Computed example of a mutant assay.
Amino acid sequence: MERDRKRPGLLEKTAEVLDLPGDVVAGLPRVELTGSRELRMENHKGILAYGSREIHISGGKLVIKVRGSNLELKSMNASQLLITGEIDGVDLT
């Protein structure tokens, strides 16, 4: 029996019932950029590389590369982090 591809999966149903964004339920990274001076990220999996010009963050299946100058990891806990500095670009790989 072929599975109906239009039927929502368990994660989608859970997100809908709990009125939560699907990315949060699925554990996907959520990146918020405020201007060119601040980047907040939820659901990270750790720092892979750290420097004043580039910071690489694990997002599970994605790697988020923050490029700029005077970059600084201002705060970090198990699920969230804050990077400040002159952010020139953000790459998702």
Rank of each mutant, 00 (worst) to 15 (best):
L73I: 14
S52G: 00
L10A: 09
G27H: 02
D19I: 01
E2S: 04
G68W: 11
G59Q: 07
R37H: 12
S75Y: 07
L33E: 12
E2Y: 02
L92Y: 15
L28P: 03
M41R: 00
L81D: 01
R7S: 11
L10K: 12
E72C: 07
D88V: 00
L33H: 05
G51V: 06
H44D: 03
M76N: 02
S79D: 14
Y50Q: 12
E12I: 06
A26E: 13
I55L: 05
R3K: 09
L81H: 12
R5C: 02
L62A: 15
E32C: 02
K6P: 00
R53D: 13
K65Q: 10
R30W: 01
E38F: 01
S36T: 13
V66Q: 00
R40I: 03
V90I: 15
L81E: 02
G89E: 06
E86T: 12
R37V: 09
I47S: 00
G22Y: 08
R37L: 14
S75Q: 09
P29F: 01
T34Y: 12
M41P: 03
V17S: 10
R30V: 15
I83H: 00
V31Q: 10
K6M: 09
L62D: 08
M1C: 01
V17M: 12
K74I: 14
R40A: 13
R3C: 04
D19A: 13
G35W: 05
D88P: 01
S58R: 02
S69H: 11
K61E: 14
E2P: 11
E72K: 12
D19M: 02
D23H: 08
L92P: 06
E12F: 01
A26G: 06
N77R: 03
M1R: 07
I57C: 01
H44Y: 09
D23I: 08
E54C: 05
D4Q: 12
T84G: 04
S75G: 09
P29E: 04
E16N: 13
I57R: 01
G46F: 10
I55H: 01
L28W: 02
L62W: 10
S69D: 13
E32H: 04
H44G: 08
L92K: 11
G35R: 03
G59T: 05
E86M: 10
G46P: 08
N70S: 13
T14S: 11
M41V: 07
N70M: 05
S36E: 08
R30H: 10
G27K: 03
P29G: 05
M76C: 09
P21W: 06
K65S: 15
K13M: 14
L18C: 11
E12V: 05
L11A: 05
R53A: 04
G89M: 04
L62G: 02
G89A: 11
G59V: 06
K65N: 07
L11Q: 03
A78H: 11
V17F: 13
P29W: 00
Y50I: 07
S69Y: 09
K74W: 10
S36G: 10
R67N: 07
T14W: 12
R5M: 07
E42H: 11
E16D: 13
G35M: 11
E72S: 09
R40E: 14
I57V: 11
T14H: 04
T34P: 05
R3V: 03
